[in-house]
């Protein structure tokens, strides 16, 4: 029973983290329909930015973490403007863009490896506090992940509903042609979406840095989980990303109760498979408002 309670807590903590990943990825994918696998290296880049701010600038953690979203939004926007957008303008098929995205992932990961080396980089002098609550222990990072997820989800919902850019994002996600017809600058909205989605991914990137350290390939598994979470939840849906994140987190963690550890990474994909069989549109489609 104690093991179950602990796995539940871990599952919820990971669920918050996965939901953050899905939120950013889903915002980009759901709005622009670009399967942005290079989300992974941009996510890793954000962790390295925070690491450098701590290591070389000597900044305290609470200031250094701001470098993550900043670096990711610039990186994500640059990837859109310099790589995806020229493809879109030439009217390339979504297959070409997908291949571009995969190629870009490899190139950017290699660039990070060249720049930082393959070893694990940890934030100087950081140790997460651990709280013991009865039979289970909860880390400060798990709590922080959950709180930031909820704050960001509420903020993003309000942004989408009440601002001009937010409405433009909803419109573009609904119908690109119509968005152009009502006079929305779809390139600019896409740029904003890439910056915003990447900044959200960076929040998860910072948590990975603090949990286990940064490596150039640290984005490899997260981008796939982000994809699963966004698709399972329903593309572009905020409640969907949250539900999808917790579903993957809980199934993965509670699965450990019965399933050998080696299978942990596969569980998310089994879940994807099952959900797509039963509900191909995702759990929350059309509830993005």
């Amino acid at each position: 029973m104690e093991l179950f309670a602990q796995l539940l807590v871990n599952g919820l903590g990971n669920g918050s983290y996965y939901a953050l990943l899905g939120l950013g990825f889903g915002l980009i994918f759901g709005t622009t329909r670009i399967v942005h696998f290079a989300y992974g290296p941009v996510f890793a880049f954000s962790a390295f930015a925070v690491w450098m701010a701590g290591k070389f600038l000597g900044l305290p953690l609470w200031i250094a973490v701001l470098f993550g979203p900043a670096a990711a939004s610039v990186g994500g926007a640059a990837v859109y403007w310099l790589a995806y957008r020229p493809f879109e303008q030439r009217g390339m098929s979504s297959h070409s863009v997908l291949i571009l995205s995969l190629g870009l992932t490899i190139v950017l990961e290699s660039a990070l490896t060249l720049g930082f080396g393959p070893s694990i980089h940890t934030f100087p002098d950081f140790a997460a506090p651990i709280f013991i609550l009865g039979p289970v222990f909860v880390t400060g990072l798990q709590l922080a992940e959950t709180v930031t997820l909820l704050v960001l989800a509420v903020a993003l919902t309000r942004f989408l509903q009440h601002t001009r850019y937010g409405k433009g994002i909803l419109a573009l996600g609904d119908d690109r042609d119509m968005a152009r017809i009502v006079g929305i600058d779809t390139d600019r909205i896409s740029l904003v979406v890439f910056a915003l989605g990447s900044a959200i991914s960076a929040v998860a990137g910072v948590f990975t840095l603090l949990n286990e350290g940064a490596t150039p390939t640290m984005g490899f598994y997260p981008v796939f989980v982000a994809f699963v979470v966004a698709v399972v939840g329903g593309l572009g849906s905020i409640p969907g990303a949250i539900a999808g994140g917790y579903m993957v987190g809980l199934v993965e963690s509670l699965g450990l109760w019965q399933i050998p550890t080696e299978w942990q990474n596969s569980i998310a994909f089994v879940l994807l498979f099952v959900v797509l069989m039963l509900r191909p549109q995702g759990l929350f489609v059309g509830m993005k408002r």
């Binding site: 419109a171 609904d174 119908d175 042609d177 119509m178 017809i181 059309g286 408002r289």
Partner: peptide, 11 residues
């Protein structure tokens, strides 16, 4: 435009 010239998922 031709067809449904609206955003189908919005109010």
């Amino acid at each position: 435009p031709q067809g449904h010239g609206i955003f189908r998922t919005l109010s």
